[in-house]
Simulated scan of single mutants.
Amino acid sequence: MLNVAILISGGGSNMQRLLEDMARPHPGRARLVLSNRPEAGGLAKAEAMGVATEVLDHRSFGDDRAQFETELHKILLAYKIDVICLAGFMRILGADFVSAWQGRMLNIHPSLLPKYQGLYTHRRALEAGDRLAGCSVHEVVPQLDAGPVLGYSEVPILPGDTAQDLADRVLVQEHLLYPKILRAFLSRFEPPS
């Protein structure tokens, strides 16, 4: 069974869906939920579901991103993690860290990649006059939101939609897509030698 770590920064709604799916027969098990914010609401949800939690507050490292990532790497190794799921983890990870975990780290992004990498995806889709928005699960590579897309879900943009309306409907699809993609990814996963 493959050990999965889920990294969060907030309420953890995608994390919760992943944990619920892994509570059934699954190729992976949730070994750790880690947040860079001690106040993240998802930590209590994970604890209530019986999953180990850790906090690594990025603010205590000041501008030393490399030291934060070194400590993060140590924690992940201590828990014998095979695969990382970023689920609302609001830190851009550096190239050295990503390279060390490449092929073993997934992210959910609220757009139909390669469109709208980065932030404010829903507002940007509305401003562009798009008819479709959605979400994508992709492998993490050193370039932001540029890794291979493993799956996506489309959401129509309706007349009068606000960015929040669209975000709410996309989130429903994220909750369905991420567990499905993680399950498929782990089913064919081969650990690096």
Rank of each mutant, 00 (worst) to 15 (best):
C85M: 11
L56C: 09
R59M: 03
A125F: 05
I8D: 12
R104S: 11
G94K: 04
E127I: 11
K115V: 00
M15G: 04
L7Q: 09
V55R: 08
Y79R: 14
K74Y: 03
E39W: 09
R37F: 04
E20K: 14
A125I: 14
M105Q: 04
P25I: 01
R59G: 01
M22L: 13
L158K: 13
W101M: 03
G160V: 13
L56A: 10
E154A: 10
V141W: 02
T70G: 00
Q173C: 07
E127P: 04
F61Y: 15
R24C: 00
M22I: 00
V83N: 02
C85T: 02
H138Q: 09
R104Y: 14
E127K: 14
Y79E: 07
Q173S: 10
A52S: 12
A100N: 04
D96I: 01
A184R: 14
A87N: 10
A48R: 15
L76G: 06
N107E: 05
R169T: 12
R169H: 12
L34R: 09
Q173P: 00
E39M: 13
I81G: 04
N14E: 08
L186C: 09
L18P: 02
S136E: 06
A52N: 11
D82A: 08
F89P: 00
V149I: 15
M105S: 04
L32K: 11
V83I: 13
V4G: 04
L34E: 05
W101V: 05
P192K: 15
R169F: 10
L150D: 02
H58E: 03
M105P: 05
M15N: 06
L177M: 08
P148L: 01
I157A: 09
V98L: 02
V98C: 03
A184V: 00
S99R: 15
V141S: 00
K180W: 06
R169G: 14
R29V: 11
Y79K: 13
R91I: 13
V4K: 08
C135M: 06
H26G: 00
I6C: 12
L166Y: 14
A163N: 11
R104M: 04
I81C: 04
L34S: 09
R24K: 12
R183W: 03
D168R: 15
K115T: 03
L158G: 01
D165R: 10
V51Y: 07
Y79S: 01
G118E: 13
N107C: 05
